[in-house]
Simulated scan of single mutants.
Amino acid sequence: MKIAIHGRNFSVQTKPYVQAMFDDLVERQAEVQISHGYHEFLNFAGVAHPFQSTYRTPEELFDADFMLSLGGDGTLLEAVAHVGARQTPIVGINIGRLGFLATVAPTAIKYMLHAIVNGQFTIDERSLVSLQTDKDIFEGIPFALNDFTITRTEMSSMITVHTYLDGQFLNSYWADGLIISTPTGSTGYSLSCGGPVLLPHTNNFIITPISPHNLNVRPMVVMDSCQLSFEVSSRSGNFLVALDSRSRTVDASTRLSVQKADFSARLVKLNDDNFLNTLRSKLNWGFDIRN
């Protein structure tokens, strides 16, 4: 079994679970490759393991059977960027905070390893948004699981995002920015800006303005078979674009368009994992301190 591992810093309380995971991988004689930064942190944290194979770039990542992501949802988004078109199944182990995507608790790591070895899981295919532009802004990783965003820089005033749907003019959004969210990203940035929650396998994008100047401009749901293109006007002459947590500053002459990627993110779901249960739990639906 070939396992790739990516993660972030963890607390002292979490260390025993991480150590137990590596002990289990050694016992199973797994072939393991670890992201370079996480490998350095494991050494600093005193996690004992014999695995010395690391990768710094997606190109150096070997063809793993599974990618283990140890952190929160942000860590899993990084793992998606590492895996890319390989579509290696990703297991999200939640040692972060919110955990819509990383749903395996640290206490369940041993059970998780047993489950994936014995095929007791399903693969959850999640659509990605892909960016096309006249410049290689994101160093060969032009896709995102959650969202693509266009926002003003910290020092600039509002921007105007002229938006086209399959080449036809849709609207000019005078706002702090615009979010194009996948169904997976509907519980992220888009939700905080008033966007709707979509079930993960809905074939849609959400167009969500960020602090629009015109209050009658509302989030809009469109089919993910369409292409959305943008022209941005900014007094400062530049603006920010982001794919998940990766952001870049670009000049106003940059032409941008997005569409559904031709590959997907494959998330490993254990048999007791249910999105609706996660939704109720993380959003505190039905929770009332009076009960």
Rank of each mutant, 00 (worst) to 15 (best):
I3N: 01
H6C: 14
G7Y: 01
V12W: 05
V12L: 11
Q13L: 14
K15G: 03
Y17G: 03
Y17I: 04
V18Y: 00
Q19A: 08
M21K: 08
D24R: 15
V26S: 12
R28T: 06
S35N: 02
H36F: 07
G37T: 05
Y38C: 11
N43E: 14
F44G: 01
F44Y: 13
A45V: 07
A48Y: 11
A48I: 15
H49I: 02
F51D: 01
F51K: 04
S53Q: 12
T54I: 07
Y55N: 02
P58N: 09
E59Y: 12
E59A: 13
E60G: 05
F62N: 04
A64C: 05
A64F: 11
M67F: 12
D73P: 03
T75Y: 00
L77P: 00
L77W: 05
V83D: 00
I90V: 08
F100A: 02
A102C: 03
T103K: 04
T107L: 13
A108M: 12
K110C: 07
K110F: 07
H114P: 06
H114T: 06
A115S: 10
N118V: 03
S127H: 12
L128A: 10
Q132H: 15
K135I: 15
I141H: 08
I141F: 04
A144M: 07
L145C: 13
N146A: 05
F148D: 04
T153E: 01
S157Q: 11
M158T: 07
I159W: 07
V161C: 03
T163L: 08
T163F: 09
A175F: 06
I179F: 09
I179Q: 05
T182K: 06
T187D: 07
G188E: 02
G188D: 00
Y189T: 03
Y189Q: 13
Y189N: 14
G194N: 06
L198M: 15
L198T: 15
L199W: 01
H201E: 13
T202Q: 12
N203F: 07
N204Y: 14
F205N: 10
P209L: 11
P212T: 07
L215W: 00
P219A: 03
M220C: 05
V222K: 11
S225A: 09
Q227N: 08
S233L: 10
S233K: 11
S234V: 06
S236V: 06
G237A: 04
N238Q: 10
L240I: 11
L240C: 15
V241L: 09
V241Q: 01
V241A: 12
A242L: 01
L243N: 02
S245A: 10
V250G: 10
D251L: 10
D251N: 15
S253Q: 14
R255P: 08
L256H: 00
V258C: 04
Q259M: 08
D262K: 10
F263C: 12
S264M: 09
S264L: 04
S264Y: 15
S264N: 14
L267Y: 06
N271V: 01
D272K: 07
D273V: 01
D273C: 09
L276R: 05
L276V: 04
L279Y: 10
L283A: 06
L283T: 06
